[in-house]
């Protein structure tokens, strides 16, 4: 069965290996120079260099590859696995050899699932290594834009996407609709976890701070009349690379307000000046910021990987249950 699995899978495996090799060569050629540049250039210059030009393009390509690989695995390895055999009728051949269908599925899921995880892991490893100078310079790895393209979490995504594809193929029984469903469901799951699950995996650190020139990130004054208008502000936290999950303004009474009502000291061109901030502090305005420190990167990586691996196992378990009862 291992032989048959490999024989049917080898074309896809070669494509994946060719893509891995192409990316490996590209990154191996450019990576050492990027690292040297990081060591020998001032941080600001280094960031300028990598936010434009060929290194920028390469970093985007790397991020895109790691982002896309799990989805592609679900699409081309997962969805057709059962549905194509159902369409061609070849399951009726395969399931009448001297091997139970449970074992057939176990070997298929095991081998190709592991290959999916290995491929995603290797892609991510290469990109994580290559981008490490840029990531160090940016200090931020927790932000939604890069978190999913680094470390071990793509392994979880790949396992999940593969299991999702197999499940869709088993239920829908037709390859093309199963592929479409797989992509849609995978994107939905990734977005949902990023928006609604990841921020709550670990209790965020909360700090209450007055607004100062030093910590100010944004300052917006609405309807700028003679007495000024409502103000909204956002401040940073003293924790490099922190991922700010939420921020609220608290007034002197300890209540959350949507914006700071007009304050004379901040009206007109006096906005965002030291006297304005002093006045806001006197009035009791504070910013309540909830954030995840950058040091939690690996804790988040392990947690989210575990979530997606658990989902993949659930889907695989469902496939075993389904295949014994409903498929012919």
């Amino acid at each position: 069965m291992t032989w048959l699995t490999w024989r049917q899978f080898r074309a896809q495996a070669w494509v994946a290996m060719a893509a891995l090799a192409a990316l490996a060569v590209t990154l191996a050629v450019t990576g050492p120079h990027l690292a040297t540049l990081y060591r020998t250039t001032r941080r600001g210059d280094f960031l300028n260099l990598t936010q434009a030009g060929s290194y920028h393009v390469l970093s985007l390509i790397g991020a895109f590859v790691v982002l896309a690989v799990p989805g592609l695995i679900g699409l081309f390895w997962g969805a057709p696995l059962v549905s194509r055999e159902l369409e061609a009728g070849t399951l009726r051949l395969a399931w009448n050899q001297s091997i139970t269908r449970t074992r057939w599925l176990a070997i298929k899921l095991g081998i190709i699932g592991l290959a999916a995880m290995a491929a995603a892991g290797l892609f991510s490893l290469m990109v994580t290594w290559w981008s490490s100078p840029i990531d160090h310079a940016n200090e931020s790895l927790l932000g939604p834009a890069v978190f999913g393209e680094r470390g071990i979490v793509p392994i979880g995504y790949a396992a999940f996407a593969f299991a999702l594809g197999v499940t869709a193929g088993l239920l829908i029984r037709r390859t093309v609709p199963a592929m479409a469903t797989t992509v849609a469901a995978f994107v939905a799951a990734r977005v949902a976890v990023t928006l609604w699950v990841r921020p709550h995996l670990l209790a965020p650190v909360r700090v209450l701070s007055v607004i100062t020139q030093g910590n100010l990130n944004t300052y917006t004054q609405h309807a700028n009349g003679p007495l000024g208008g409502p103000i909204t502000v956002a401040v940073g936290v003293n924790s490099p690379g922190a991922w700010i999950v939420s921020e609220q303004t608290i007034n002197g009474g300890g209540h959350v307000v949507a914006s700071i009502p007009q304050v004379a000291a901040c009206a007109g061109n006096r906005g965002a000046t030291p006297p304005c901030f002093t006045r806001l502090a006197q009035l009791g305005y504070r910013q309540l910021v909830a954030y995840q420190p950058a040091s939690r990167f690996w804790a988040f990586q392990w947690d989210e990987t575990a979530i997606f691996l658990a989902l993949a196992l659930l889907l695989a378990g469902f496939c075993f249950w389904w295949i014994r009862r409903h498929v012919s």
């Binding site: 069965m1 032989w3 048959l4 049917q8 051949l93 009448n96």
Partner: peptide
């Protein structure tokens, strides 16, 4: 399963696999 041989309707085979591959499949399974 070993005691029963089955030839399904429309006699499905793996289109991408060669005749020798099919024999290999039978031998291994």
């Amino acid at each position: 399963l070993a005691r029963v041989g089955f030839v399904a309707q429309e006699t499905p085979t793996y289109a991408a696999l060669s005749v020798a591959d099919h024999l290999q499949l039978g031998a291994r399974l």
